[in-house]
Design a binder for these strands. Sequence first.
DNA 1: CGATGTGAACCTATTCACAGCG
DNA 2: CGCTGTGAATAGGTTCACATCG
Lengths: 244, 244
Amino acid sequence: MTDQQEQGTEPCRPSKNDRKSVPEATVARLALYLRVLNGLAEQGTQTVSSEALAIAAGVNSAKLRKDLSHLGSYGTRGVGYEVLILIEQLSQALGLTQHRAVALVGVGNLGQALAGYGGFSSRGFRVVALFDADPQRIGQRVAGLVVRHIDDLPAVVEAESVSIGVIATPAGAAQHVCDQLVTAGVTSILNFAPVVLSVPEAVDVRKVDLAVELQILSFHEQRKSELPVESEPELASNGFQGVG
Amino acid sequence: MTDQQEQGTEPCRPSKNDRKSVPEATVARLALYLRVLNGLAEQGTQTVSSEALAIAAGVNSAKLRKDLSHLGSYGTRGVGYEVLILIEQLSQALGLTQHRAVALVGVGNLGQALAGYGGFSSRGFRVVALFDADPQRIGQRVAGLVVRHIDDLPAVVEAESVSIGVIATPAGAAQHVCDQLVTAGVTSILNFAPVVLSVPEAVDVRKVDLAVELQILSFHEQRKSELPVESEPELASNGFQGVG
DNA sequence: CGATGTGAACCTATTCACAGCG
DNA sequence: CGCTGTGAATAGGTTCACATCG
């Protein structure tokens, strides 16, 4: 992200494919496409056009084609894309071919919900360990795992090759937990605590702040109630589907 | 940003303020700044410079100033911003001066965690009702609220002036629940189910897909392990802090 | 013929750099 | 003098429109 590099056909190294700088916005959507494609595959669909897939994913078809073009040419002109092949390519591009171990820190309300969330395991991620600082919680069983003390983190990260840490602690503990994760060697963090984390630049942090999401909606609510009505009452497509 | 017009001292319409098109990217950050400012206020800070606030929020100071400039001029040159005044302005801009009622549908793992999440109530939102379709759950008490049947939704939305709906159901139920929310008059939806919702264009949807977040991290993990090392081991600022 | 893949145009957002004010 | 507020420059992303190919 700090450095960016050339894309397009460079002369001497067409070896694997031209995996170049896939735009950040595209990466987020690749995950979305993959989800939709898995749904199509389950119901037995073999081929999709960019148009159909785009509609299912709620995006513009040109955008979809451009997104996919960053990975290479896996479509057939006049036909579309083979669902299974595209799934394969997207999985590969997103690094999902190797299963990734996840460590979750903070086994409160949210942490327990996350630990039990099926969506993780069903899509290539495995929560391998739960941590907490509260002695009360240590040793408890949650979602089939025993809650361990945070001091065990380095050992577990090492033993299980944890690559992603999830922080679901209260705000006050988050930075310290983050530091511990980083020290233990975790280089990707998903943060649910409402704080801005400081990390070395080699570490990626994504945050999910539920209150912020609501506030963004609140902003638009206010807008709607200010300017009365103006558009025809046409029932149509879908909203802007935020996040990213 | 579509239309831009003079700000500062315009001749005839200084009435409210020149609330114009605040860029979408800015809106998301305003909520972030507000959070940081509340922290500052709590610890008694009275004034911040754009530089200090920007660092605390993890953004570039020029960006912060530009963001704030969309709301008007509330800083003092050579000094900075008064914390309390900025909080006031941001709260107003985000529509938080009127408390907003939230209805939560789907009282499973995640739903219960959300219902009990303090971050909502502490920041101007109040979860006023919980709904589920499972007869087993109806009547249960969760986070101080009785779980009601989804069919009661229209009555509650009306009675409590619900403006935001949160969907925490399984994927299969989400679109139907969404339709019910929309029919009941809800115009903003926060969706945790891994599906793309179809809604009338007057309705705003934001989605939080936990698996997608992990996949984005996975992508970057893969990148890191591909190109070996290159940067000096300098411990520095913070990563890109995703979502929005 | 129909759908992909892509240059070019467009729009949005970020960053720079400094004028201008307190 | 220091910091805000902002035009101008740059970068990033989206959409259009069409040549190209199966």
